[in-house]
């Protein structure tokens, strides 16, 4: 993990289209280093080696969904403090509250504007680090 500086983002989403566009935006516009995973299981395998500063996690996925992946990530040693931002197409107030209660750093609504995605992450990161 980098110190107080957002550099490495682990993005987990089962949809290839979304992984591609998020990587493009976060790398090209945001200047971040991005690791993309197609499932929660894949993320759990690769998260330690990548050592992210922040995790961007889709809610609805087959197999391990977002909340289940979140809980599994929290059980891994040394990763308990890495902020997790959920990405959801159902950004209802009750859902947002549920994710925050779980310990999520923030929630980003789908569909998102790729151009502003890096700023959205930075804003949540700054709030969390502030």
């Amino acid at each position: 993990m980098s110190e107080n500086n957002l550099q490495k983002i682990l993005h987990i989403d089962d949809e290839a289209d979304i992984r591609q566009v998020a990587r493009l935006a976060l790398e090209t516009v945001g200047g971040f280093t991005v690791e993309s995973c197609a499932s929660g299981a894949e993320a759990l395998e690769r998260v330690k080696e990548f050592d992210p500063d922040l995790i961007l996690l889709d809610v609805m996925m087959p197999g391990l969904d977002g909340p289940a992946t979140f809980r599994a990530l929290r059980e891994l040693p040394d990763l308990g403090e890495v902020p997790v931002i959920f990405v959801t197409a159902k950004a209802m107030p009750s859902e947002l509250e549920r994710f925050r209660d779980m310990g999520a750093a923030g929630v980003i609504a789908k569909p998102f504007d790729p151009m502003t995605l890096p700023d959205q992450l930075r804003e949540i990161w700054d709030e969390k680090s502030g």
Partner: peptide
């Protein structure tokens, strides 16, 4: 429909995305 609702607008199909969200 959930997948389409979450991606269509990002790729330039906002009305289709809204319709997919409605279908979901």
């Amino acid at each position: 429909a959930h997948k389409l609702a979450g991606s269509a607008a990002t790729f330039g199909f906002p009305e289709l995305g809204d319709a997919a969200a409605d279908l979901e």
